[in-house]
């Protein structure tokens, strides 16, 4: 149950990272076609990193869970 809550938190963090990437353009403090301001650069880097880390963590979590399932299946066959 606790691990499930953690996974949900990772999903929310992934969505938060996507929001941070889109925020400068969605909120409107980055003019289109203009050079990126400091806030935009900061948001893009942090949002991208956050989304990437969350996504990689989710993939690792799913892969490890699947590996454990496969191991349990092997043991039950034997």
């Amino acid at each position: 149950m606790k691990a499930k809550l953690g996974v949900i938190a990772l999903v929310v963090l992934f969505l938060g990272g996507l929001w941070l990437v889109a925020a400068p353009f969605a909120v409107g403090y980055q003019a289109r076609g203009a050079t990126y301001v400091d806030a935009t650069v900061n948001d893009l880097w942090l949002g991208g990193s956050l989304a990437a880390i969350s996504f990689v963590s989710l993939v690792i979590y799913a892969a490890d869970a699947l590996r454990e399932l496969a191991r349990r299946g092997k043991h039950s066959d034997a």
Partner: peptide
Amino acid sequence: IRKFVGTVAAALAVLAGLWLMIAP
């Protein structure tokens, strides 16, 4: 190991959030 990875990722997110708060 997956829970450990999740813990590290979430801890990094905490740091990122704190930086975002003081960044402006």
